[in-house]
Structures are given as structure tokens and as C-alpha cells.
Nucleic acid binder design. Structure first.
Lengths: 229, 229
DNA sequence: ACAAAAGTGTTGAATCTACACCCATGT
DNA sequence: ACATGGGTGTAGATTCAACACTTTTGT
């Protein structure tokens, strides 16, 4: 038997209201390491793959165990397997990490565990991270932003019903630029990804906006022949 | 120590002239299994990861060992880890496969080993394949076609210099549709991915076409923060 | 009445697509 | 001369981006 360990880690994104700056930002839950190496540093949630467990099940399980979150979107990101990635400060066994990335809704994110060892951080300015997790987060962010432009994953950040302004805000926060509301509306409406519920969101300070829902027909992202799995 | 084995497999694509139909098609080298399970079936080249070997090195090494090919483009595709993927006809240990995909040039493909146990097959009509390799090939094909539309990987199929007609043929064969030569030329020229060498390809039956080369500046595909690795 | 977000309309620019047409070579 | 692929030009359709303007609510 060889000495390579295999683990799953997950980069989790959610839109959260930052109370300090009075704005919403892209957040990411991290767990504090309680063992050497990198004891005390922040790291991505994850853990070893059990012998009878599919990789995506490992992702879901470790996610629930450490953060109590269940994602609306979960996709494999990349497998990091460099020989020395787990043996940098002190020698350790080789670990190959199959990394997933996940999106969760704001309400879901609120329910998540939050204590000294599990906390949300800004996705674009993460603290010092253990192992090669900084690179992993960079790549996950890049994938999120890239995929946002040609798929409907933005909807995975929102609940069952939502207004177009809310959906637009998702794009604006993630892509870090403002979008023209008029053009955005037309783009989304003609894409066929959403459909109006007929209801309106009342109680706002201004004209009540239409509510939309996800169109069940098509998937949030086209992953080709992999969607079947 | 757990009982999960970790291996690397690679889907290799090349454009090859099919002598039967007098046309070029997308080919893929496969190796015949010499052991149970699936003994005698065709499978993707690959093998177990050595303890001191990076994943991409395993891909390169097994590629050379079994097919004698060295690719111009090599990228991680996906990691397949379903519990029962290697224990279908007869029980066997669990194997997680990190799959890569590769592109090789025609001249390179000619040099590759070819015998009873290593042979080229049509990428879109593969024979019965071992394990879940049929799914893997499907996915690799999908990725190739998808990525072809927004990157310059098509150039990895060609040598140092090439004509625009040759580059166009790559697109036509892979995407399985004809492209307007005039519009194709403009698209490619304005993309900045190629630059004229100043030379012309002589010896053809018609007007000698300009020769182009890859522009060294930018990479063939934008893989974000992963390009550094 | 007014402020501000929701939603509609319009215009010019940029891009895509189809196709006409000229150019240069081997036969 | 002519067939054929190499290469340029152009007109119409489609898409994109910017912004004016109307609608509807709370205050």
C-alpha cells in the first residue's frame, strides 16, 4: 500500500452583509487548524475521504460537520497533488486534495456555525492560509467570476424567489463592477433562466419590484456529460 | 493506511489523416488491457501515481511509457472517484483517477507506438471501453470543443508554423462544421494569437498561403491563477 | 410634491454573417 | 486559359452599451 493520503476540501462562497462597511461582500467560511502543521492558521474545511464514500459526499459531509452548511451549488474545482504541498514547514505524509467549490444562500449562511474556530472571511482578502490554500482560493474565485459570465450560477446565491435588483447585486458584488439595470434586465429576461412569479415584493421604500423564480427546466450550469453523475 | 489507490489517466487527442475515408479526423490512442478486469478491452493510457511524483509528471511519464508521445498541451480534466468505478464486473480495490487531457501534433502522433496493444481510434466513435472510460472520453471531448470556442488551444494541434487554412481545418474537424474562410481569417488575425512569419508555403497546387506562427506572448489557454503551477 | 428605485424605449457602435469579388499558382 | 484555394471588401442583421424617460411606491 502506498503512503499517499487523499482528502477533499471545499471553497464555500456566500454573499453576506458586512456590518462594518454597510455593504454586502463575498464571504467564505474558514476553519482554524487545531493541530500542527499550521496550528492556529485558517484553512479550508475538509477532511479525508472515507473508503465507502463518493468524493462529492465527502465534500457535503465535511461541510456539514465543520460549518453546518448545505450548499445550493457544488462542483469539483481541481485536484492539487504537488509532492511537497503538505510537507512544507515540517515533514508530513503526502496529501492529494480534491477540491470542490460551493455556493450557499444568505439565509443558509446565517444559520452556519460561527465561533472561535469557524468564521467568515472576505473572499478577496483572505488571512494567511495553511498549506497551498491561498492558491486554491485564488483559483476558486477566478472560476466563480469566469463561470458567472457564461452561466446562471449567480442564482445559486439567492433563495426561491428574488428580484432582478437582487440578482444584479450578486453580479456586481462578485464581478466588482456596476451593471446597467436596464440592459441587465433585458439580458436576464431573454436568457430564459428566470420566470416571473406574478407576485411583487412589497414593503420596500419604492416601487414594488416583480419577483422571479429559477426556471426548473435547465440547470444552473452546463457541465456537459458530467451533469449526469 | 486506507485502501484507496490513486492513478492518473490521460485522454490524448490528435488530428490524423484517415486513409480509408480520405479525410482527417480526431483520433485518440488507446491501450489494450492485459489483465482482469476488462482484459482485452481498450482503455485510456495511465497508471498509478508514484510517491515522489507530481500528478502532471505521472501523466507525462505514463504517456511516454505506453505511447511514446509527448504532448504540446496538457491540462487536468477531472477527478473520477465513485466508490464502485473499479469494482464493477469483479470486486477490486477502490481507484481514484485524476484524469488529464492532452493535445499532440500530427508529426508527433506519427512517431507514436502502434501495435496490437496500442492503437489510434476515432474520438467520437470509440470502441467499448473499460471502467468508466467512455464517460471520461465524452467529457474530454466536450471540454475540447467548449474550450476551442474561447481559447487558442487549436494551435496546439499544429506545428511551429502553419497556414490559416490548416488552423481552420482544426476547428472544422473538431467542431464538426464548416467555417467561412474569410470570417475565420479576420477573427484569428484580430485576436492577436498568431503573427505572420513573412514566409509562404510553396509547393501547393494553388496560390501559396502565408505562414503564421504562435505568438509567444500569451498562453494558449487562460487558466487563471493555475498557469503559474 | 418629491426622491428614488422599477421598468421601458431609443440610438449609435461594435460585432457577426453571408457572399461577391479579385489574386496567384499549377496544370 | 482555367480551376482552385488564398485573400479582400461590403452590405444587412444582430447584439451591445449608454442613457433618456416614464411608472410607482413611501415619506
Amino acid at each position: 500500500m502506498h503512503g499517499i493520503e487523499i482528502a477533499v476540501s471545499t471553497v464555500i462562497f456566500a454573499l453576506r452583509d458586512d456590518p462594518r462597511n454597510d455593504c454586502t461582500a463575498l464571504g467564505m467560511p474558514l476553519v482554524r487548524r487545531v493541530r500542527q502543521p499550521y496550528e492556529g492558521s485558517w484553512a479550508l474545511p475538509g477532511g479525508p475521504v472515507r473508503p465507502d464514500e463518493d468524493l462529492t459526499d465527502t465534500a457535503r459531509r465535511t461541510l456539514v460537520e465543520t460549518t453546518a452548511l448545505s450548499p445550493t451549488y457544488l462542483e469539483q474545482l481541481y485536484t492539487f497533488g504537488h509532492v511537497d504541498r503538505a510537507s512544507k514547514p515540517v515533514p508530513g505524509p503526502r496529501v492529494i486534495s480534491v477540491v470542490y467549490w460551493a455556493l450557499v444562500r444568505p439565509e443558509e449562511a446565517e444559520r452556519g456555525i460561527e465561533d472561535d474556530n469557524v468564521a467568515w472571511h472576505a473572499a478577496d482578502h483572505p488571512p494567511e492560509l495553511a498549506f497551498d490554500h491561498a492558491t486554491i482560493v485564488d483559483y476558486a474565485l477566478w472560476r466563480l467570476r469566469t463561470k458567472m459570465e457564461y452561466s446562471r450560477i449567480a442564482q445559486a446565491f439567492l433563495g426561491e424567489t428574488f428580484t432582478l435588483a437582487q440578482l444584479r447585486q450578486v453580479y456586481e458584488v462578485v464581478l466588482q463592477r456596476t451593471l446597467d439595470p436596464a440592459n441587465f434586465r433585458r439580458q436576464v429576461e431573454s436568457s430564459g433562466g428566470v420566470e416571473p412569479t406574478g407576485e411583487y415584493l412589497v414593503g420596500g421604500r419604492h416601487r414594488p419590484p416583480k419577483l422571479y423564480r429559477h426556471r426548473a427546466a435547465s440547470d444552473l450550469a452546463d457541465n456537459g456529460p458530467l451533469t449526469r453523475l
